[in-house]
Simulated scan of single mutants.
Amino acid sequence: MRRAVCSGSFDPVTNGHLDVFARTSRLFDEVVVGVFINESKRSLFTVDERIELLGEVTRTFGNIRIHSFRGLVVDFCREHEAGVLVRGLRAVSDFDYELKMAQMNIGLAGVETLFMPTNPLYSFVSSSLVKEVAKWGGDVSAHVPDVVNQALLKRLPAPPD
């Protein structure tokens, strides 16, 4: 079985993430989405909420499993018997960082990294940007699945006048 991992914090999951998941799910028999738990980062959604949102928006794919993890992504890959890590790239700046990580991952555990260029429709979208715009009352509905948009509207207070 050909299995790949897509990892990230997904706080929140965006349409750009979904695009990478969809394309990855066509290339591999199974995709394991790893939700990274980073205690040093203050998240808008809990890990359980992120897993629930991811489950809702990936339900139709049929070959995606979602799990949380701490520590090294290569250990997560080994745990799930995945020899490939798929990373979406939005810009050259992403490549600079991701190339170093890919080289470390192959050296640490023999895990290959597949770089997937992001669809140009989503090249500027990031979870951080979505949260910042939503925090100030901006409409992010074109950049996140509807269930995520609804969760953002419930979670974030109305912006100050």
Rank of each mutant, 00 (worst) to 15 (best):
T118P: 10
G110K: 03
V148D: 01
A134F: 01
S141K: 12
L129E: 02
L129D: 00
S123Q: 09
V144W: 01
V147P: 00
P120A: 04
Y122V: 03
G138A: 05
V130E: 02
L121C: 12
D146S: 15
P145K: 11
L108T: 01
M116C: 10
V148F: 05
G137W: 04
E132V: 05
G137Q: 09
G138F: 02
H143S: 15
S141M: 10
D146V: 12
E132P: 11
G138I: 02
P117K: 04
V111D: 03
P145H: 09
V130Y: 00
L121K: 15
L108F: 11
V147E: 09
L129Q: 03
P145Y: 08
K131S: 08
T118E: 15
V144C: 01
F124T: 13
P120K: 00
V111A: 07
A142P: 11
V125W: 09
S126Q: 01
G138W: 00
V140Q: 03
W136M: 13
Y122P: 11
V147Y: 03
D139I: 04
E132Q: 13
E112H: 04
S127F: 04
E132M: 05
E132R: 08
W136A: 10
V148Y: 06
S123W: 00
G138P: 06
E132A: 10
G110V: 00
T118K: 09
L108D: 04
V147S: 13
S128I: 01
A134R: 11
V130C: 03
K131T: 03
A142I: 06
E132K: 13
P120G: 04
S126E: 00
F115R: 09
S127T: 08
D146K: 14
V147W: 02
E132C: 07
S127E: 11
V144F: 01
P117I: 01
S126I: 00
S123T: 01
K135F: 11
S126F: 00
V144I: 06
D146N: 12
H143D: 10
F115K: 03
S123D: 06
P145W: 10
P117C: 05
